[in-house]
Design a protein around this nucleic acid. Sequence first.
DNA 1: CGCCAGGGGAGCT
DNA 2: AGCTCCCCTGGC
Length: 269
Amino acid sequence: METYILKDFDIQQIHRSGQCFRMEQTGEDIFRVLAKDRYLEIAQTGEECCFFCTEEEFESFWKQYFDLDRDYGEVKRSIDSRDIYLREAAQKGWGIRILKQDMWEMIVSFLISQQNNIPRIRKCIQNICEKYGEKRISDNGIIYYTFPTPSALSGAAEEDLRACNLGYRSKYVLETAKRVADGEVDLEEIEDMDYPDAKQELLKLYGVGEKVADCICLFALHHLEAFPVDTHIRQALDKHYPNGFPHKKYMGNQGILQQYIFYYELFFR
DNA sequence: CGCCAGGGGAGCT
DNA sequence: AGCTCCCCTGGC
């Protein structure tokens, strides 16, 4: 276990921002994070964060996962002082970070996210992990499941995915899993592309539209210029930016600002 | 009980 | 670009 002092980091806000559907709050200040086949517990009081892992794991994986080398304070300071709404949103979501998550997990998660709400998305992901993932036991004896691989999901029956509560999204997950498992779609290739090319490739996947492609670009590929527009963001933009969001002004960091707005709309509107 | 929305997208016209 | 339908659970 290692303790770190982290600025602009709040694990509860990150949890509530709904980027990661395999994160849960297990105590007042304790959180559990599953990523790829890893398991982590975090306890946070103020800026003091206990990561229940070795320093090596922290340095080689979690530091990157939580984007801890980026100065989010700088992004917040770049916000136009006349933009009261955005300043307020960034202030409320001061501890949010854009996670760098696994691409396959994000593809499946956001295929499932459409016309769905966050608690239900969590349940769906949990269902497919328990059914198609691998059972593991953490160092402290907690049973958890890894995220199912493309080939594990490609072998599923559509009916069984529906039984996991995916509904009509089952066919999207199944079809995409097959294409990735077959090698027809090469995820590693997409990982090396810039934002416009990666998005264009992702749009070719069955069930992936503008919004889902942007979520994958932002939360997996870490293209911070991606700005996913969902129903909440749409409403906020119509209300606060009738002439459009000032993308040029914030070029390269719009994704971070999107998360501030999303979080603000969800919990403070 | 009905109605509606919840981090959309495909398949039509 | 605009429509309809896809599914289904929870809230009112």
